[in-house]
Amino acid sequence: MGSSHRRWADGGYPIMKRKTQRAVLIGSGMAVLALAVGLAIYALDDSLNFFLSPSQVQAGDNIPSNTFRLGGLVEDGSLVVDGEMNVQFVVTDRVADIKVYYDQQAHGLLPDLFREGQGVIVEGTYGQNLFTASRVLAKHDENYMPPEVADALKEAGEWRGEAPE
């Protein structure tokens, strides 16, 4: 024990090793931090979602009794507008369908990108199989193309449309 002390420099450890020591300290600190954040994210999981899917709402688990958001596609052919600008449509994830009611006069016009077959997020309350929305947001997908390309894809039957989340 006593003789091995002589191999160490004045600080109690070899000077050349300080850099390695710092590197190891930083590396292990980062690893522990990553683990902690990973666990936190894992634990928070569902609460960090911006919206619930129609299947989740239909299954009924963890449906908040107050306002929450529902997201999916506006089902083709489901949009109905009555004379007083009230709209009804179906939000689907191709597994479950939820009927949505929205009053444009009370809450403002639908966004420009709102259309059938497109992604949508509605905010409101759910009860008796009807989602009463007080806000409607259009969700844009990750596909960017000029109109000619979109038309050509549709003509060729290659149009995939929006895939549900």
Partner: peptide, 24 residues
């Protein structure tokens, strides 16, 4: 990818190649 978001998913750095037309 991990959560449902209003923000769209990646268009360029994604598995299966970019979903954005070459002209853009």
């Amino acid at each position: 990818e991990w959560w449902n978001t209003l923000h769209q998913t990646a268009s360029v750095l994604k598995i299966g190649g970019p979903s954005i037309d070459a002209s853009m």
